[in-house]
């Protein structure tokens, strides 16, 4: 719900995940000045800046970028990372000291045979987990009563959906601040995956962890509407509505499906909703939200 402006710092990465959108973009890196220009383009008031890649921590100038973000007046600086470099305690301390206190760690599964297969790198889970463990035990230098914010992003890509319960239970021991289940391009029918997603949401709640779903339209999230991330912030990737959306009560409130999913089963599985007891409250919540945050999305798109 806290708005962050996304800044892409280049697709260079130490993992080789299948279906990686950043790698497919063919933009290996951006210069420091380009990135600072992109950050400067965001209109004030500046709330949060989020560095994403690729793996941003492979940049040797990342600390300088964080310092530049501070100087530009961003009060919250987030890193979207695969977590493997955080296993180095000196690097983590350096990051926290420089002002990066928000993290989103990408994790496919808590079992190496799934996670490592999906990242294409043997041993990557062990490193990510070590980084996560260090991060969860870290305190912010000079503010001993404060710990960094640790979100977990679980991209759902078919193979790892059946492992969700085990992943959620394994994460419970680390007590992340939030888990995001992100539906990514997959040949898996959503109807088959939904029971596992619902189960994962309930397991996370039972373990007192807040969970959001991403890229899943409201019509498919019946009774789980409160977990739909796009109700609180604009989607991180472009979305489009499909023909069925025109007959749905949520048509003015829902972004539809990710554009890149238009040719997948997801768009065929859309079923218009005819009534919703939440309609008025959701309408009231969503009203005004898009205008307030989309400017930043556009600014970064232009900068890129």
């Amino acid at each position: 719900m806290v708005p962050f402006h996304e800044v892409f710092v280049g697709s260079r990465c130490n993992l080789q995940c299948r279906e990686c959108a950043a790698r497919a973009s063919g933009v290996p890196g951006r210069s420091k000045s380009e990135i600072i220009a992109a950050m400067s383009a965001f209109a004030e008031p500046r709330e949060g800046i989020s560095f994403s890649g690729g793996e941003p921590l492979l940049r040797t100038d990342l600390i300088e970028l964080i310092q530049a973000a501070r100087e530009l007046g961003f009060p919250r600086i987030r890193l979207r990372t695969n977590g493997t470099p955080l296993a180095d305690p000196r690097l983590l301390h350096h990051l926290l000291s420089s002002g990066c206190h928000h993290f989103e760690i990408k994790l496919f599964a808590a079992e190496p045979r799934f996670h490592d297969r999906m990242t294409g790198i043997s041993g990557s889970l062990e490193q990510t987990w070590s980084g996560l463990d260090l991060l969860r035990r870290a305190v912010i230098p000079g503010r001993a009563d404060r710990q960094p914010f640790v979100g977990i992003l679980i991209p759902l890509r078919g193979d790892n959906v059946p492992t969700l319960p085990e992943t959620i239970l394994a994460l419970a021991g680390l007590r992340p601040d939030r888990i995001v289940l992100s539906w990514e391009i997959t040949t898996e029918p959503l109807s088959r995956a939904l029971p596992a997603i619902r189960n994962a949401v309930n397991l996370a709640l039972l373990n007192r962890t807040w969970v959001l779903t991403e890229n899943l339209p409201l019509c498919l999230m019946k009774d789980l509407e409160v977990h739909v991330a796009e109700l609180y912030l604009p989607p991180r990737i472009p979305h489009e509505q499909v023909a069925q959306c025109r007959r749905c009560v949520y048509r003015e409130l829902c972004h539809g499906v990710p554009s890149r999913s238009l040719k997948t089963r997801l768009s065929q599985e859309i079923k218009p909703v005819s009534t919703s007891i939440h309609l008025d409250a959701i309408r009231s919540l969503v009203r005004g939200k898009r205008a307030s945050h989309e400017d930043g999305y556009k600014a970064d798109a232009e900068a890129r």
């Binding site: 806290v2 919250r76 409160v226």
Partner: peptide
Amino acid sequence: VLMSIPVAKEYNLRL
């Protein structure tokens, strides 16, 4: 309640 905890932490953690 579960949502408010990370929202408060994410928001209040500022430089």
